[in-house]
Design a protein around this nucleic acid. Structure first.
Lengths: 343, 343
DNA sequence: ATGACCTATGTAAAGGTTTACATGACGCAT
DNA sequence: ATGCGTCATGTAAACCTTTACATAGGTCAT
């Protein structure tokens, strides 16, 4: 393009009548330069419209001031608000944010590592729940940079983690149902592989036990967090004719599936069944009945994670290896006391 | 950190027993290098795990292979899928994607320009509908790079635009209502300032005129695209007692407001009123009644925009200055034929 | 045998910073 | 007068590429 050559530090130095070293110092360590000199340099900078060339600087400093964010699905509504938090904090501290949409595809994950190995990013935020494949490929063993995991911890690693306190949140959710009088509470979304699911199940169990309610294994159903899994689990319960008075769901998407199934069977919610979600994603308030759920502080999760990563980059050892933020109970219309008579 | 110094082109050259120029050529212009030499170089690269330092390369080539995306709200559900498209296409062509969340804040917009003026990005995608403020600040007049506007065109400029064909889409939406037998159709979301709104209003008018339906100015109401604006407009109609049989809304959020207002008044939808949205955002299928709407091909919009921008960067004059993609009618349950008797 | 041309490779400059080290001026204690 | 310490600034190397230009060897027509 018509790249009308940008001003360099040399142009500024010439105008100010000093050496380029002095200009650099005037910019980066103002105290080390005489007042009068600094004034002249600043004037020259203003006159030329000089901005320092980030490439040259990064080359020299071995620092790009960029953070790579690796997410399995950038389009996920749960992710976008976290991204806002990540970006806000990074921007505030002078860092840029590079995004990589991996789709859980090993090839893409490996590809994004080029940003790391080519020095284009200093650190990495992982929302994938695992290290990028290809980081230990033969002949490709990229040295991984400082990292922070968000949302899903990386198993068998000491990578710092920032996310919601799933155990506590799920416990609070179950307690809310119990406080409304429910004693037969189903848990939809057990999974032996996903850490998040396991924690939320443990929270559910803890609340029931604390209330002296026996755990009924027939009320705990598998699910992968999709709307369809919620629908299927609900149907399954009706087929077996083992019914709860309330459904505690692994997340809002699952809860939506449950609601759809119950609506289809023409039950009146929340009079006949209560449903509780987790996440508070945007549609939660638009479903009928609107969903009572635990809200994840997504913005703050993003900010805290970025803060931690930048801290690592600046050499601070973190005081603790994981930050768990509390989720907040959002009461809407999908939970009510159970009917004394069974539906 | 424990930056165990990465291999440079010089290390590779030493191992392969050639000069660094040859290594560079073996990588970038393989045909210009003898087969045997190329083999040796590749072997050396494999052995060292060398990757070219993007900073040094960018410095030398004056090209960063990065694209800056400026969006007013990264958290907007309408945006995230566009982002996926943008990122996918960029990644496919070897570019990285840098994101900037401006919140429509002039200061932040100006701040992100540092990526441009410091050579950290070669091009820019604008979702803001205007040039970043500060691009012509005194002493700061950054040369703007190649740009493409998405979603909202930049008025009074010749910046290429990629988006949905709003006129056509809105016309199709209105035609759908007309085909169901509606003749009193309200348009919610007029705005004298926003180009998108004006186009959609024109589409609405065109459809009605083509069907020989007189335009009733009382059925055209202002709105800014928020859910609240939809609710208010609906209330306003009841207060004035000028009622349509169908509501054509500027977007899904507005349609949601209309549905909420009608539900609150205990109308039976779609028997008594039909409601139509535009966008097909994720909750559209979860509202009751689920929303009939025009689906924006967001993924394709993102891809097309990035394709166009990268084309510009590679020196192709675009064949045309704007790309309008068609939206698709999604029929759900919020539209039905009007009752012959007024509600 | 000579020159022209081609191919494969090497040499060195350039790109724009930061910073270790050198320089020089000055004040002050001896 | 000498020496020392401090302060402000300058010189030049280093960061790692790409690439214009130079070189050298080989082929081929004359």
């Amino acid at each position: 393009m018509q790249q009308q050559k940008l001003a360099t530090i040399e142009d500024v130095a010439a105008i100010a009548g000093v050496s380029i070293a002095t200009v650099s110092r005037a910019i980066n360590e103002p105290t080390k330069v005489a007042d009068e000199t600094r004034r002249r340099v600043n004037e020259a900078i203003a006159r030329t419209g000089y901005t320092t060339n980030a490439m040259a600087r990064s080359l020299r400093m071995r620092r790009s001031n960029m953070i790579l964010i690796l997410a399995p699905d950038v389009g996920d509504p749960n992710f976008s608000n976290i991204l806002v938090g990540l970006e806000t904090e990074a921007s505030k501290r002078g860092y840029g944010v590079l995004i990589g949409n991996t789709q859980n595809d090993a090839e893409r994950e490996a590809d994004y590592l080029r940003f790391i190995s080519s020095n284009q990013a200093d650190g990495m935020i992982l929302l994938t729940g695992h290290l990028p494949y290809g980081h230990a490929q033969p002949g490709q063993e990229t040295r991984l940079p400082p990292m922070v995991a968000v949302n899903e911890p990386v198993p068998d690693s000491d990578i710092p983690f920032v996310g919601v306190d799933n155990f506590e949140g799920s416990r609070l959710a179950a307690e809310h149902l119990i406080s409304q009088g429910h004693r037969r509470i189903a848990f939809i979304g057990r999974s032996s592989s996903r850490a998040v699911n396991k924690l939320r199940e443990r929270g559910y169990r803890a609340a029931l036990e604390a209330a002296g309610i026996a755990i009924d294994p027939l009320l705990i159903l598998d699910g992968d967090g999709t709307t369809e899994s919620g629908r299927q689990a609900t149907e399954h319960m009706f087929v077996r004719d083992v019914l709860p008075t309330a459904f505690l769901c692994i997340n809002d998407a699952t809860a939506l599936g449950v609601i759809i199934a119950l609506n289809a069977r023409r039950y009146d919610l929340p009079r006949q069944f209560s449903v509780m979600g987790f996440d508070d994603i945007s549609f939660a308030s638009f479903v009928t009945p609107s969903l009572t759920t635990m809200k994840q502080p997504r913005l703050r999760i993003g900010e805290a994670a970025m803060d931690m990563l930048l801290g690592l980059l600046e050499g601070n050892r973190p005081d603790r290896n994981s930050v768990l933020l509390r989720s907040e109970l959002i009461v809407r219309n999908s939970v009510a006391p159970p009917r004394s008579s069974l539906p």
